[in-house]
Amino acid sequence: MDPRRTLAQQIAGEVVLSDDPGGTLRKWRTDFDVAQTTLADRLDVSPSVVSDYESGRRQNPGIGVVRRTVDALLDIDEERGGGRIRQHARVLSAGFESDVVYDLQEYSTGIPLARLYDVVGATEVSPGSATTVAGHTVINSIEAITRLSSEEFYRLYGQSTNRALVFTGVTRGESPLVALRVVTPTPTAVVLHGLGPDDLWEYAPEMARADGYSLAVADGDLNEMLDALHDVA
Rank of each mutant, 00 (worst) to 15 (best):
E79V: 14
Y203T: 15
T123N: 03
T131F: 00
I111L: 13
P61G: 09
S149K: 09
Y203K: 14
G212H: 00
S98F: 01
A114W: 02
N223V: 13
E97P: 01
G82L: 05
F96N: 02
T171G: 09
L39N: 06
T132G: 03
I11H: 01
G62K: 15
A35K: 12
P197L: 11
Y203Q: 11
P185T: 04
D20A: 09
G158H: 00
N162W: 09
S129C: 06
P127F: 05
V170D: 05
T6E: 14
R68G: 04
G220M: 14
E54W: 05
D199G: 10
Q159K: 08
A189T: 01
V120I: 12
I142N: 08
V191M: 05
Y157H: 13
P127R: 11
Q36R: 15
P47N: 11
T30W: 10
D44W: 05
E152H: 05
Q59H: 12
L73P: 05
R68C: 12
P197R: 08
V178F: 12
P61I: 12
G82P: 01
Q87I: 13
T6H: 11
Y107R: 00
A130E: 11
I11R: 02
R115K: 10
G220A: 14
D77F: 03
P187L: 02
V191A: 01
V70L: 01
D2W: 05
L92S: 08
Y203N: 15
T37E: 13
S55E: 03
A208P: 03
E106L: 02
G173M: 12
A94P: 08
D77Q: 10
D2K: 04
N140K: 06
R68F: 03
D33N: 06
A114M: 05
L165W: 08
S46A: 09
G220Q: 14
S149V: 03
H88Y: 15
E124W: 01
H193F: 06
Y117D: 12
L73Y: 02
L73W: 07
I76Y: 04
T188W: 08
A94D: 13
V15T: 02
L229D: 06
G82I: 00
S160P: 11
R26T: 00
V191Q: 03
P187G: 02
G173C: 03
T137Y: 04
R155N: 11
G173Q: 06
G95E: 07
D219P: 10
Y102D: 09
D75R: 05
G128Y: 01
